[in-house]
């Protein structure tokens, strides 16, 4: 039986009727038309579906939409302030941290969550924070450089 739930996504409340067996990834992509959240493996192994759920980055493919009832969710669509990129996004653009882009939403959200808790992370702390987000294109280096650079920008 479907349940009526409230999802607070990117500071907007949505009331949706969902079957309990639908994941947060599915509801974001299919019901809320927010396909920035990607589905790479659907098993919690790749991090492409990362969203921030109440201040913590999680694999949305392993969250039931009903479990997210009344909780705050940030997806990649909610990171920029209108046309103004978040410093992390800006750094990704400038540092060549984007190749195919399929991991990028998850990378940006994991990085955002890190920098909100740790304003001046070491390279190892950045790599640790991104270690659940797989990237096959970049070798991670330019992503790590972008996050480091964003942390310096954000401190200012």
């Amino acid at each position: 039986m479907k349940k009526i739930i409230t999802l607070k996504v990117n500071n907007k409340e949505y009331e949706v009727a969902v079957a309990p067996n639908r994941t947060l990834t599915q509801v974001l992509r299919e019901d809320l038309n927010l396909p920035g959240t990607k589905c790479g493996c659907d098993m919690g192994d790749c991090g492409a579906c990362t969203v921030i759920l109440d201040d913590r980055p999680v694999n949305s493919c392993l969250v039931l939409a009903v479990q997210a009832h009344n909780r705050e969710i940030t997806t990649i669509e909610g990171v920029a302030d209108g046309p103004n990129l978040h410093p992390i996004q800006q750094a990704f653009v400038e540092h060549g941290a984007v190749q195919c882009g399929f991991c990028t939403p998850g990378m940006v959200l994991s990085a955002k969550s890190l920098l909100e808790k740790n304003m001046d992370p070491t390279e190892h702390e950045i790599r640790e924070a991104l270690s659940g987000n797989l990237c096959r294109c970049t070798g991670y280096q330019k992503i790590v450089e972008a996050v480091k650079s964003a942390s310096q920008t954000m401190k200012k």
Binding site: R29, L34, P35, L85, Q89, V93, G96, V98, G101, V108
Partner: peptide, 21 residues
Amino acid sequence: SRLPKVDAWAKVTGDARYTDD
């Protein structure tokens, strides 16, 4: 040079569309 990629903006904001989107 080191110009940013043409698709970088769309990809960092989630606006980029892949087939399954």
